[in-house]
């Protein structure tokens, strides 16, 4: 099967620091792929490169939205990446704190809406219908994710776990075919992690959205992912199924350090 996300030899250099060293990765349809590695390995840099926040020094990022041709999204703006169907969440929650939960999700719908200045001022029929539709759609997404009880709350007043879920809801509102989750379980308790686990599986199975996630919670990673990529110092050191990765000596070395026989 053809990959829907294909990253080839991605290299990112910050001055003298080589943050990513020709990393190659692909995600196929309906797959959950995890990207793991020690702190500072370049995982988030990788996300920032493929979503257009950074412009990679070298390499190509190719996506294939369902039913469309493969396109190169290397170096285009983040909003265009999202428009083409690749949405993401952030490691440190980046919600719009002074907007309500519903409005946060409505922002996600923004790129699927058309109303311009004239539409806003004259408030014609199509604009009104669009606004109504957006509220409806946004509420449905919240209902699915289980946040509808908070619909009119300000995002900043939400409990931590709910904020993480709201980020996912907001990303889903952009109608993606692939979702990039940057440490979705960070700071969650075991109960919340369990719920997140279910949520991610549900997104893949019911919503047919592929997932690429960065995560430190090994239990979550091992139980969820179909395939795992391990990076260290910007280099890919291993890839394979969870079982393969668990047994890989290079991975153990990267995480636990080398045995030093004196």
């Amino acid at each position: 099967m053809n990959p829907i996300l294909e990253v080839k030899n991605l290299t990112m250099r910050f001055g003298g620091l080589l943050a990513l060293d020709s990393l190659t990765l692909n995600v196929r349809a309906d797959e959950i792929v995890a990207l793991i590695g020690p702190n500072g390995a370049g995982k988030t840099t990788f996300f920032n490169c493929i979503t257009g926040i950074y412009n990679p020094t070298k390499g190509n990022v190719l996506i294939r939205p369902p039913g469309k041709k493969q396109i190169n999204i290397n170096g285009i703006k983040p909003n265009h990446v999202t428009e083409r169907g690749m949405a993401r969440t952030f490691q440190n929650i980046r919600l719009f704190p002074n907007m309500t939960v519903l409005e946060n999700v409505m922002i996600g719908r923004h790129c699927r809406m058309k109303a311009g200045i004239a539409g806003a001022v004259f408030r014609n029929k199509s604009t009104l219908a669009e606004e109504k539709q957006v509220v409806q759609d946004s509420y449905e997404i919240l209902e699915k994710i289980g946040l509808n009880q908070f619909v009119n709350e300000l995002a900043m007043n939400l409990p931590y776990g709910a904020q993480r879920r709201l980020e996912i809801a907001r990303a889903m509102a952009t109608d993606p075919f692939i979702l990039l989750l940057d440490e979705p379980a960070a700071g969650m308790n075991p109960q919340e992690t369990k719920e997140l686990d279910d949520l991610i599986l549900w997104i893949r199975d019911s919503e047919k959205i592929s997932i690429l996630l960065i995560e430190h919670d090994m239990k979550l990673v091992m139980s969820l992912s179909d395939r795992i990529y391990v990076v260290d110092y910007g280099k890919k050191i291993a890839q394979g199924t969870p079982v393969q990765i668990k047994a890989d000596p290079k991975v153990i070395k990267a995480y636990l350090g080398e045995d030093t026989d004196v």
Binding site: I53, P78, E83, F90, H110, R112, R170
Partner: peptide, 8 residues
């Protein structure tokens, strides 16, 4: 940044 990532 979040704003851009959400397609605005």
């Amino acid at each position: 940044i979040a704003c851009q990532a959400m397609g605005i």
